[in-house]
């Protein structure tokens, strides 16, 4: 009996007289939340726009960890089907990855012609070829895009502002590297693997 009271008192003493301890921080820890809401007007959304579950990725096309997460996201989509909408936003780490901005611009240029997701997938499936723009151009041709317009928009950096806006929105939401996922609006601090993502999505349903 007396033991219990002592412990309780000890805790109170520590809390009031000291700064928060790391243990307390961990207990109170709340992952950052997505500051920029998902909108059909602006976002690239795969899956039903009004799906009950939302997975947002801030990614970089040249980042190997994003490349590794790409098939994991596919697994999540397969598992959850029409319950899920998947959103991709740009977070090119241009100081580390020299082709990341160009790749993001490539996907955005394809998006303008209605082919964001095929190009997004293609870029992740051909990460090793990002340094050679003719590879993505060849795919654009195959997709039936107006390649002149496609090339011109990339060369003129038409989408750089949008990409930078994505980046800063990510920073304000607590993106701390790539890929960073948000599960129903909360940063996913666990591993970027299908199992953990599906668990988190179902958990916060």
């Amino acid at each position: 009996m007396s033991g219990t009271t002592t412990v309780a008192r000890k805790r109170t003493t520590r809390k009031t007289l000291l700064e928060p301890t790391s243990r307390e921080t961990a207990e109170k820890y709340q992952a950052p939340r997505l500051e920029i809401p998902v909108t059909a007007e602006r976002d690239h959304i795969e899956g039903p726009v009004n799906a009950s579950l939302t997975l947002v990725e801030y990614g970089d096309y040249q980042c190997p960890y994003c490349g590794a997460a790409y098939p994991e996201v596919k697994k999540v989509q397969k598992e959850l089907g029409s319950e899920l909408r998947f959103v991709f936003r740009n977070f090119p780490l241009t100081n580390m990855h020299e082709h990341a901005m160009n790749a993001a611009e490539t996907a955005e240029a394809a998006s303008t012609q209605g082919k964001f997701w095929p190009m997004h997938d293609f870029l992740y499936e051909h990460q090793a070829a990002l340094g050679d723009p003719s590879v993505a151009l060849g795919y654009a041709k195959k997709l039936g895009l107006d390649t002149q317009r496609f090339e011109r928009e990339i060369a003129q950096h038409m989408y750089q502002k949008r990409i930078k806006d994505d980046f800063m929105g990510g920073v304000r939401s607590g993106v701390n590297g790539t890929p960073t996922f948000y599960v129903n609006g909360v940063r996913h601090d666990e591993d970027a693997v299908a199992k953990a993502l599906i668990e988190a999505l179902n958990h916060t349903k």
């Binding site: 790391s22 961990a26 950052p32 920073v171 304000r172 939401s173 607590g174 993106v175």
Partner: peptide, 10 residues
């Protein structure tokens, strides 16, 4: 930051 969590810049 809790162990292993990169706090980001927000």
């Amino acid at each position: 930051s809790p162990d292993g969590i990169n706090p980001g810049a927000d």
